[in-house]
Amino acid sequence: MSAPIIEFKNVKKCFGETVIFSDFNFKVEENEIVSIIGPSGSGKSTLLRILMTLEGIDGGYINVAGESLWHMPWQGQHVPANNKHLHKMRNHLGMVFQHFNLFPHMTVKRNITEAPMRVKGVSRAEAEEFAEKLLQLVGLADKADSYPNDLSGGQKQRVGIARALAMKPSILLLDEITSALDPELVDEVLDVIRNLVKEESFTMLLVTHEMYFAREISDRVCFFDKGAIVEEGEPEAIFTQPKEERTKAFLNAYIGQ
């Protein structure tokens, strides 16, 4: 069996006095789709933010694609990573945010082509061609020249997905991507992910409150509480026969299981 593409080893993370993870261990295999569910404040989003290098760690190690994310080798030792190392490691990852975080002063097309051109040195023609393909994939081929403020929430999030995919990450992180949307717009975003999963192989980590979607799309579901994985397993097992009382209580509250 190959090494996991993501591995947390004894990770510690605090925000001031508040401990989020004290001794956290977690693995994700290549091309595995893992949904993370749990109550607010349980550390779900922090997990993704640490992977995307938006938050540092206070202890332990994280490996991504066989290399340490937050550390690097230097003179035979593991030392905290410098910007160059983090820059290299970020190439493995792409993230879609809850609040889209599109660049409002750029057109949809420019939002998607900016990073490939700047970071990967892709030519404008090539970047725009790929952007058009991505916009077709997310059903927004006619919105290439629109600005984010002219789009609905669902459309913005679909652009956010296209923008993350434009960097061709091997790991896609989806942080509550439907939480900021009106209920009628949720499905158009989830359909994009459904189609994406059908067409491409991805390692995907999604934090979500859409339980039916997590059940439908995931290879594994992890229930988080207080910075720890309380229960994990195949979606059917988690959603139909949860073993832990905390999981049962959460799912009952959510879906009236």
Binding site: M52, R90, N101, R118, R163, M167
Partner: peptide, 8 residues
């Protein structure tokens, strides 16, 4: 954060 996630 979006800029960092895109590795700019």
């Amino acid at each position: 954060e979006a800029a960092r996630a895109l590795n700019l």
